[in-house]
Design a protein around this nucleic acid. Structure first.
Length: 916
RNA sequence: GCGGGCGUGGUGGAAUGGUAGACACGCGAGACUUAAAAUCUUGUUUUCGCAAGAAAGUGUGGGUUCGAGUCCCACCGCCCGCACCA
């Protein structure tokens, strides 16, 4: 039988690898190590095709590096705490723990058939007591080291469910379950002092050479270093204790254009005024109903309220500015107070225009363009790059014409010399709030005691285990609020310091804490300390980290901080401060959405022919009712005679008895439907979403085609960093190709022919070319080009007239080159053609440079930069020879028409360009 | 709103500043077959042309260069992140 049957060969080779134990990571000081890690998944219960792509990329690297002689660590685990488990418990009963572990078992079962070279002996879940116990130990170490503290912070509060909401649980300002208006509420919470590391985290980005530039840039912007001026405005008739209002500004050079002083609704002055002024109280209350996300604050309409108070301008005491409370000023940034510079800040301008406040530009372009309209004459905000020279019309420090940067520096010096303020470097990066008022997370191991205050739990009392049940019954998640709050037998404990009755902290940790050190834990996953020095020293750092761009900022920045914190508390060596040597961010797997637009459903009547305007309007009104999303298996996709992709409901095909292989009949059926105002619209390359029904299940794919096909396809069609569109046709093509390779290997074994001859040499050269190209593709994270080369190499072997021996040799190399991508097929081909042992253990082939050089090259000839011909020249031909050949070329002779070329450029081995 | 990214045939994409469209899908033609599937051969950027060939062509408009998909500027469109989703 010469057909590839994945369901037979895949389990066979997986068992062989298991038996040989080849994916067990072994600390081997004699060999260089390589640690490849894909971002671990959340155990939702189903693996997603995006996971398949992510893990296949890691697997290609892991298998390749292993063949290159590295001792490879390639582990897998579960980011297992978090809200979905609690949501599930609330929605359909059950317990988050049971839900999570059952999901993990399911997902492991779905992943194993993919044939990933994972060391499963190192698997853990972050909700394992063994894991979070160590996290609690580190919490106490970090608390003692001054890396963790408590302060007040704002959260989204649902007054009906009596719970804190995540940003994603706030929909249009209302709680997603209760529908109640969300409030902003201050709670005392735990924080990591990541802001102490702002400068270091920013500077160290420069050393991350193997990180994508865009990720480093995003992190740099997130940390947001700025140089500005902090100074005070003296108030007029303000309540006691508010003689001065401190502001921080990055544009002190615009101070002479100040139009108002703005403070946050959470500013102490705003709070003081609230007590006596109901209008202000109402306004602040309204502001507090807004969400806490930056996005929401920035996109909300700018609103404010005049406090009636004023401040004196620091450079002109006779100039009084009104104090406004504004919804877009955050208490967390700077001092919670700004001065509005309406000419040079878009938000301030919008605000000033809305409330009729003055707009006073302080500088203008050096060379004013004709169409320039200053902001005070109704123009746009003028905000050129700070490196650009501008002309100051209301300056107070520095030259009249200077750059923004120079003007800012001059303004700061001016204030410092006069003793009015100080230059300050600030960072946008805020401290990392790690408290979550939820059940399903790592308990924060501290106790609140009336006499002693906040006391860390004693180390010998650790771990603080998350209670599974309450009074013998599983915890009930249908009751509003945090279950830990209403769990006396867990909460009530003696104070670790004085022994008096006290209560446990009921906040749990942000799941970002869990994922900020799991990579280190993989080096000693079951140790009784967070890490083991010699293991961490050998395996760390992660040589290649692979994951989604959505983690570019938070997860990766927190991990960089946490690695430093672990170093400071003795849990990681200094070399691990930057734990990820190289980072790769892969794209999504997308899939077409099929949407049935059925206007008959909308109108209830069958309309044929041209519709009237009134009817059209009716369709528009009822749009929502006539859109139906369809599963891919509900439709048949085909290309019409112009190659345009179309789709038909399978139901329709059955009803009309259309032959699906007859494209003419399909096209006719499509037009019949279209004339009936019914069309299946294809929306390509959409993010997979259950509600849009465009999700493909890896389990189905593996069942139908096998893991190798799934792996091959997700790597083949797009560059890894870009999105790839899953198509049934593409998967089919991948499957066919792998079948062809298998058949070629099989047929070779049965055939036989004498060796030798020029064809053998040509095939050998092609083999070395393939080795070089495929290797370059893997090294450069361009797996799609490696696969293109493998297709080409397959075609070359298939067409080659070389001997069977030479072809078998080429096919054995093919097996090796395939082994990172399609490991099962590779083993099968390898063993069919007499390869020794497992191909997974064979050393990676090396391309012989001597086999890569060609004797002659084709040199294209351009005339004025356009290709007009080509010549074949010897590889070593000197410039003069080439020039003579170029000038003798027909097209050149014709173009020159007897005259001399203006210029003749010859790039040896690349191109010749004649300028006439 | 702020920040980041991406735009190349009917489709996914390839291309150290040097032949635009590798490789694959789709489609067309042919072989094999009673037929279909499978497989194999072959063609396929567009326009004009029987052909040889010519012209145009990498979202739009400019610029740098002997030469631009690639570098620079402006614009348009789409996608992603925004601190309690993971």
């Amino acid at each position: 039988m010469s057909r590839l049957i994945p369901s037979e060969i895949e389990p066979k080779w997986q068992a062989a690898w298991d038996e040989a134990g080849i994916f067990r990571a072994k600390r081997d000081p004699a060999r260089p190590k390589y640690y490849v890690l894909e971002m671990f998944p959340y155990p939702s219960g189903r693996i997603h095709i995006g996971h398949v792509r992510n893990y296949t990329m890691g697997d290609v690297i892991a298998r390749y590096k292993s063949s290159c002689g590295f001792s490879v660590l390639h582990p897998m685990g579960w980011d297992a705490f978090g809200m979905p488990a609690e949501n599930a418990a609330m929605a359909s009963g059950g317990h988050p723990k049971d839900w999570t572990y059952s999901n993990i078992a399911d997902m492991r079962g779905q992943m194993k058939p993919l044939g990933l070279s994972i060391d499963w002996s190192r698997e853990f879940a972050t909700c394992d007591l063994e894991y979070y116990a160590q996290q609690q130990r580190m919490f106490i170490d970090m608390l003692e080291a001054g890396l963790i503290y408590r302060k007040n912070a704002v959260v989204n509060w649902d007054p009906v469910d009596m719970t804190v909401l995540a940003n994603e649980q706030v929909e249009n300002g209302r709680g997603w379950r209760s529908g109640a208006l969300v409030e902003r509420k201050e709670l005392t919470q735990w924080f990591f002092k990541i802001s102490d590391f702002s400068e270091e985290l920013l500077e160290a980005l420069d050393g991350l050479d193997n990180w994508p530039e865009k990720v480093r840039l995003m992190q740099a912007n997130w940390i947001g270093k700025s140089r500005g001026l902090q100074f005070g405005f003296e108030t007029v008739d303000a309540p006691d204790g508010f003689d001065r209002i401190e502001v921080y500004t990055t544009r002190p050079d615009t101070l002479m254009g100040a139009s108002f002083l703005g403070i946050s609704p959470d500013h102490p002055l705003a709070r003081a005024l609230e007590a006596e002024n109901p209008d202000i109280a109402a306004f602040c209350a309204e502001c507090r109903r807004m969400g806490t996300s930056e996005e929401e604050l920035e996109t909300a309409e700018k609103k404010g309220i005049d406090t009636g108070l004023t401040v004196r301008h620091p450079l002109d005491p006779s100039w009084e500015l009104p104090i406004w409370i504004a919804n877009f000023i955050l208490m967390d940034y700077g001092t919670g107070a700004i001065f509005g510079s309406a000419g040079h800040d878009a938000r301030d301008l919008e605000f000033a225009r809305k409330y009729g406040l003055p707009v006073v530009p302080t500088f203008e372009p050096v060379e004013t363009p004709e169409d320039f309209v200053p902001a005070d004459a109704g123009g746009d905000v003028y905000l050129p790059p700070k490196s650009e020279k501008v002309r100051f019309i209301k300056g107070f420090a520095g030259e009249e014409i200077q750059t923004g940067d120079e003007a800012i520096a001059a303004a700061i010096s001016f204030f410092e010399e006069k003793g009015l303020g100080t230059g300050v470097t600030k960072f946008r990066l805020r401290d990392w709030g790690l408290s979550r008022q939820r059940y399903w997370g790592c308990p924060i191991p501290v106790v609140h005691c009336e006499s002693c205050g906040v006391v860390p739990e004693k180390r010998e009392n650790l771990p603080v285990e998350l209670p599974y049940d309450e009074d013998g019954k599983p915890i009930d998640f249908s009751v509003p609020g945090n279950p830990l709050d209403r769990h006396p037998s867990w909460r009530d404990v003696p104070c670790p310091a004085c022994g008096k009755p006290a209560g446990r902290e009921t906040d749990t940790m942000d799941t970002f804490v869990d994922s900020s050190w799991y990579f280190a834990r993989f080096t000693a996953p079951h140790a009784e300390t967070p890490t083991v020095a010699e293991e961490a020293d050998y395996w760390m750092n992660v040589d290649q980290y692979i994951g989604g761009i959505e983690h570019a900022i938070l997860h990766l920045l927190y991990s960089r901080f946490y690695a430093r914190a672990m170093h400071l508390t003795g849990h990681l060596p200094a070399k691990c401060k930057e734990p990820f040597e190289a980072l790769f961010t892969q794209g999504m797997v997308t899939h077409s959405i099929y949407r049935l637009d059925d206007q008959r459903i909308a109108t209830g009547v069958q309309v044929i022919g041209t519709e009237s305007d009134a009817e059209l309007e009716e369709y528009t009104k009822t749009e929502a009712t006539r859109i139906n999303y369809l599963f891919p298996e509900e439709i048949l996709e085909f290309s019409d005679e112009f190659g345009v992709k179309k789709a038909l409901l399978r139901q329709v095909l059955e009803r009309d008895g259309v032959d699906p292989s007859n494209s003419q009949a399909l096209s006719e059926a499509w037009h019949r439907e279209f004339d009936q105002r019914r069309e299946v619209k294809i929306i390509p390359s959409a993010k997979m979403s259950k509600s849009k029904k465009n999700v493909v299940d890896p389990v189905d794919i593996v069942r139908k085609y096998g893991a190798d096909t799934a792996r091959w396809f997700v790597m083949s069609d797009s560059p890894p960093e870009r999105d790839v569109e899953w198509t049934a046709a593409g998967a089919e093509a991948a499957f066919k190709h792998l079948g062809r390779v298998y058949r070629m290997a099989h047929d070779l074994r049965e055939a036989g022919a004498p060796d030798g001859g020029a064809e053998d040499v040509a095939l050998e050269k092609a083999t070395h070319r393939a080795i070089a190209d495929v290797t370059a593709g893997i090294e450069g994270f361009a797996f799609n080009t490696s696969i293109a080369k493998l297709y080409a190499f397959t075609n070359t072997i298939a067409k080659s007239q070389a001997s069977a021996g030479a072809k078998a040799q080429a096919m054995r190399v093919m097996a090796q080159l395939l082994s990172p991508m399609t490991p099962h097929l590779a083993e099968e081909v390898w063993s069919l053609l007499g390869g020794a042992g497992l191909v997974a253990r064979a050393a990676w082939p090396e391309a012989d440079p001597a086999m890569l050089v060609e004797d002659t090259v084709i040199l294209p000839i351009q005339i004025n930069g356009k290709r007009r011909g080509e010549i074949e020249v010897a590889k070593e031909a000197d410039k003069a020879t080439v020039e003579a050949l170029v000038l003798a070329h027909d097209a050149v002779v014709r173009a020159l028409d007897g005259s001399q070329p203006k210029k003749l450029i010859v790039v040896p081995g690349r191109i010749a360009n004649v300028v006439v």
